[in-house]
């Protein structure tokens, strides 16, 4: 019997080993490596001297750090409501019971931008938003608006552009999650409400919405987590500009690490991001987990 237990241990070890190795080296070890790096002068080329807490004290007095952290937060604040409300509206629209061809078409249309590469959507946006020759300004002009809108040259408009593009690009994921939940609401609930003589609005308010609350919470937390990681589309569309008005934290980390070759400082700032994201991750996992499986 003892023999059997040992055999099982070894067997389990063999099954676990490939995943375990990759997981430890590339997921767990970086957490500790990053902590070490943040306490050293660490250039892109080599490890330098022990720096104590100096990276962290520098970070607290670095206005660029705070600005980029604020920019990231601002993006979360600006994009999250739209990401949820628009997704809900789209899901309600795509859930109407008419021919399945139309339903599939609507579902596909709302989701398809999500599968495009960030580089593709960014360059579509850049070219569509160009002054003089871009089609967005063309359209505005043909609707009677005089002059040119410089979408990416003005901080407010640059944020509008970034949030708008991101909404178009990724709202499809949330949309699908809402849609699936809508379709999961048992018909009997509606039938019961109907027997009670509920109006359509009452049905929506008393049946649909309450049923969507759990998934809304999941979507909200996933959305906040995802938005805090914003980087690529801003880098490509505005490069953080005009000036540094839209530069998010990850871009600043990148610039410090790979344009100023200061990996130690970049690691220290990453740690701040790490803790922010960790907090949301913990909340998310405690409040119901990733998607529907867990």
């Amino acid at each position: 019997m003892k023999n059997q237990a040992l055999r099982n241990d070894i067997l389990a070890g063999m099954f676990l080993l490939p995943f375990f190795l990759i997981y430890v080296v590339f997921t767990i070890f970086p957490i500790f490596k990053g902590l070490q790096m943040s306490f050293f002068d660490w250039s892109l080329i080599e490890k330098g001297e022990f720096a104590g807490f100096s990276q962290y004290t520098a970070l607290f007095t670095d206005p660029d750090f705070w600005q980029s952290l604020w920019n990231t937060t601002l993006f979360v604040i600006l994009s999250t409501p739209g990401m949820i409300l628009l997704a809900l509206v789209l899901a309600l629209l795509a859930n109407i019971n008419v021919g399945s061809k139309l339903r599939t078409f609507l579902r596909g249309s709302y989701f398809i931008p999500s599968i495009l590469s960030v580089s593709v959507i960014s360059y579509i946006a850049i070219f569509m938003l160009q002054p003089y020759s871009g089609i967005v300004n063309n359209l505005l002009n043909s609707f009677g608006l005089e002059g040119q809108v410089y979408w990416l040259a003005n901080p407010v408009l640059a944020w509008v552009s970034i949030v708008g593009v991101t909404l178009w690009w990724t709202v499809g994921f949330n949309f699908i999650l809402f849609l699936t939940s809508l379709q999961d609401i048992p018909d009997s609930y509606y039938e019961a409400a109907e027997i009670d003589g509920a109006t359509r609005w009452q049905m929506f308010k008393d049946v649909t919405l309450p049923q969507l609350i759990p998934i809304s919470r999941v979507i909200f937390l996933l959305q906040v987590l995802a938005s805090f990681k914003v980087f690529a589309q801003i880098l490509l569309i505005t490069d953080g500009g005009p000036g540094t008005a839209t530069r998010p934290l990850i871009q600043y980390i990148y610039e410090m690490g790979f344009e100023q070759y200061d990996l130690g400082y970049a690691a220290a700032m990453s740690y701040v991001l790490f803790f922010i994201l960790l907090i949301f991750s913990v909340i998310q996992i405690r409040s119901g987990g990733q998607g529907r499986m867990i």
Partner: peptide
């Protein structure tokens, strides 16, 4: 819970 973006430097 480990956010990959935050450990990309290490």
């Amino acid at each position: 819970m480990v956010p990959g973006e935050a450990t990309i430097i290490p």
